[in-house]
Amino acid sequence: DDVGSAYSSLLRMKELPIDEIKLDQGFVRSLEQRPQDLHFLNTIQDLANGMQVDLVVEGVETEDILDA
């Protein structure tokens, strides 16, 4: 769906009682092969920090991914 339109709008996040953002392991599984994907993770981390909510990232199974 389009980001920013109808029900899927990111604007809805402002209205929801969010206390945690949980990121699926699919976002970190390929970091060792695609380190450029770290930009996306950094953006999500900045969003969580800005909203003052916890960020839970699933699938962190290696030291390299944890360090990233």
Rank of each mutant, 00 (worst) to 15 (best):
P35L: 15
L11A: 14
D37F: 08
T62L: 05
D1F: 03
R29I: 01
Y7N: 07
T62Y: 04
G59D: 00
D37H: 10
D64V: 12
K22I: 13
L47N: 00
N49I: 05
L31F: 04
Q36K: 09
L23C: 13
E58S: 10
L11C: 07
S9T: 11
D1R: 04
N49F: 06
I21W: 13
E20G: 02
E58M: 08
G4I: 02
D2Q: 09
L38R: 07
D46A: 15
L47G: 02
P35Y: 13
V60C: 07
F40T: 12
F27K: 02
D19S: 15
E58R: 04
G50D: 04
T43Q: 10
S30N: 14
N49D: 13
I44P: 00
S30C: 08
L11R: 11
D2S: 09
L66D: 09
G4H: 05
R29V: 04
L47W: 01
N49C: 07
A48K: 08
E20F: 03
D1K: 03
H39V: 14
Q33S: 14
A68W: 02
A48M: 08
L47S: 04
L31D: 01
G50Q: 01
I65F: 01
V57H: 07
S5K: 06
E58I: 05
L11M: 11
S5C: 04
M51P: 06
D24K: 12
M13I: 15
D54K: 14
E32S: 10
A6N: 00
D37V: 01
L47Y: 03
N49G: 06
S30F: 10
P35D: 11
V28G: 00
A68P: 00
Q25I: 03
L10H: 11
Q45L: 13
K14N: 12
A48Q: 07
V28E: 03
E63I: 09
M13N: 04
A6W: 00
D46W: 01
E63N: 09
M13R: 07
D54L: 10
V3R: 12
Q25C: 06
K14W: 05
L66A: 15
G4V: 04
E61L: 06
V3W: 10
P35W: 13
P17C: 12
Q45A: 15
L55C: 03
D19L: 12
N42Y: 09
V56Y: 10
K22F: 08
S5Q: 07
G59H: 00
R29G: 02
Y7E: 06
L10A: 15
N49Q: 10
V56Q: 09
E61M: 06
M51W: 11
D19V: 15
S5I: 02
E32D: 10
V56C: 11
Q25L: 08
R29C: 05
D24R: 13
L41M: 13
D24L: 09
T43M: 11
P35R: 14
Q25D: 07
V28M: 00
E20H: 10
V56G: 01
G4D: 03
H39Y: 09
L38M: 12
I44C: 12
L11E: 10
D64T: 14
A48E: 08
A6Q: 03
A68F: 05
M51D: 02
